[in-house]
Design a protein around this nucleic acid. Structure first.
Lengths: 208, 208, 208, 208
DNA sequence: GATGAATGAGTATTCATTCAT
DNA sequence: TATGAATGAATACTCATTCAT
């Protein structure tokens, strides 16, 4: 696409893949999986159509790569917090904060993902994505919730929290985080929002 | 239409239109708006293609009819509870219960609706549905949340609840209800789940 | 459609056909043959869809009936003038006048007809109308031109006109009449326009 | 695209796009705009359906391209004659000849165009083509007639022609040309026909 | 590697016509 | 006779994917 000097070419060939990923992020976020077209992606990435298929076997695999590259660091960060030796309550606040931060940054793309993986991991799917892909993300989602559960379990073990249904509360906490993000209800200072969420879940909204 | 015995007539009068609506419910629920094809709907409804367009002007209008016919009674039921003179806490539990019940019954279709109306009412849309339709449902969603807020506000006024950010808590409560439904975490006895959700929000999960 | 007294019914059943024809005239004129829909016609005629097919076997046959009912009187009027014993020049002016008048009144519908009968009667058709229908109108058109020729021939025989190619001049005269109508170049007093057209053809536009 | 010998290249560079245009010319000419189907065009052009939409945005735009590519040279040729310094009478004959030639070669397609642009530029349209397209061609038609008028005006100015209604005669001349073509009344030697037409208009058909 | 021309399966929608009442 | 619900063939257009250069 560029008839320039060699150095440029080398850089270009390295960045082609990234250019495509960046463009794909943009387009998938704005249009959703189905309405995103390869044509729009290449226009934005300034590449040829074939190039996409050199790096990615599929529209689907392109999408998955995107998800993975962005999601993995988050997953690892969450696991790191869970494995740390912070006090239980601090851990709870920390994972809330991480979750708010991550979804805040990736709101649009993850909204798309969530729809494609229909209903946060359940059901009778016959979606746009292949069954294998679907399963993968459902699994990933489950392990994310697992982290919430694990942290909550610590609180229960340490008798800081009442004996609760871990799974339900984990899902609830997660859903509230996501909802706050999607409704633009997260304060400029994420810490504040995280603390508020934690506060509601810990102490409730009733007087006394 | 048929000079047969009453039972038949009753079935027939619902006939084509209802058959189509039922089939559409099924297909939209399983496939989402975009992937749902009119062809599949008519195959399931056992009608000709033209028949769909006799009763509905559009794929979109078919979808909207579906949503409206199911959603309106729910909305009204919610408003009725809000307008009742139950004690504030009972109202809260009641709207939670209604919400769990409604989403439990319409889980799949409302999942689809929520995706199309992107992220529960926000954002940079370029969806499958027309802007007008979109706006309508965003408005409907907002008024649903409004009911949660109103009921919570009563609790605050009556000094049963602490002074909270009504909007945030309303969204939170709603999101938890929906999440419970979508994760199949609702007990056979909805009352139990409703009470548990209320309990967590009111008194928190911390000991003391 | 009306639950009225018998007399009315009798009138209605007679007028249904006419109502449909009137509506059809309107719709075909405005939309052309292809874009005219039976639905629009019945809406205008205030009849049921089936009724159209009681009186007319086809959309095509409905159109043809329309053409015939309007065209036949014109054809006969033309023939009458041709058979009259007016002086040749007066005959020419008379058929010009008749033509201007007829096309003026039926401009839109005849525009449609002319298109369907592609190119005033020639060629490699594969039109909307059936071959038989086509042929019929091409024949009708030919006999119309024939009348022009016949009248011109009289002029030549009587040595009022130079020896000309009758056919060419006939077609020319006709085309000018139609063009005047379609371009709204016909004066309020048709006689004036007819005389002008005759004048140009008879004496030319050159000085001397 | 092909590293082959020149002849091949020439053919190929015209290749798909031109194949489609040729096929489209054929089909539009035979079927008219509405009945011409993209399926038939691609069958004739021996291409895939998508290919058509790579080169043309629309069925309409395909049609317009066809018209433009053929019509523009004619329009320019006419303007050139009008701007030349031939004697007025020769100009008249020349534009008649050009018109006969052009419509002779493009009879079928222009018949279609004329119908779509309803009645040579008038009226209550609700056509198949978009309003913009329509307007464009109505304008093009008007400017064609304008050339006739201009040339006639010269004759009047030079007192070769009587003071006539330029517009009416212009339309008349044009309509006669077109009619001659559509009725296959043009002689093998176009000059002859052109001279005859001019002769009738200039000197009339009456003796003396 | 990079490209983009070519492809065709897939989809919403229209509308003349039928036929049971 | 009048009706209109039901029908399905027909049609423009989209877009992921391939492959020759």
């Amino acid at each position: 696409m560029e008839h320039v000097w060699a150095g440029q070419v080398a850089e270009d060939s390295k960045s082609k893949r990234q250019q495509i990923l960046n463009a794909a992020y943009d387009v998938f976020s704005r249009k959703g999986y189905y309405r995103a077209t390869v044509d729009e992606i290449i226009a934005l990435a300034d590449t040829g159509k074939g190039t996409v298929y050199n790096y990615f076997t599929n529209k689907e695999q392109l999408f998955c790569t995107l998800i993975q590259e962005r999601g993995d660091p988050f997953q690892r960060a969450m696991e790191k917090v869970a494995a740390s030796n912070l006090p239980a309550l601090n851990k709870i606040e920390a994972i809330i904060k991480l979750t708010l931060g991550f979804y805040g940054e990736n709101a649009d793309l993850w909204r798309v993902l969530m729809h494609e993986v229909r209903g946060f991991g359940c059901g009778t799917n016959q979606a746009n994505l292949s069954p294998e892909t679907l399963e993968k993300y459902q699994h990933g989602f489950a392990s994310l919730i697992g982290i919430f559960e694990k942290v909550l379990a610590e609180g229960v073990d340490q008798e800081i929290l009442r004996p609760i249904n871990l799974s339900k509360v984990a899902y609830s906490l997660f859903s509230v985080c996501v909802m706050m993000v999607y409704q633009n209800l997260v304060d400029d200072d994420i810490d504040v929002t995280a603390r508020n969420i934690a506060s509601v879940f810990l102490y409730g909204i009733a007087r006394y």
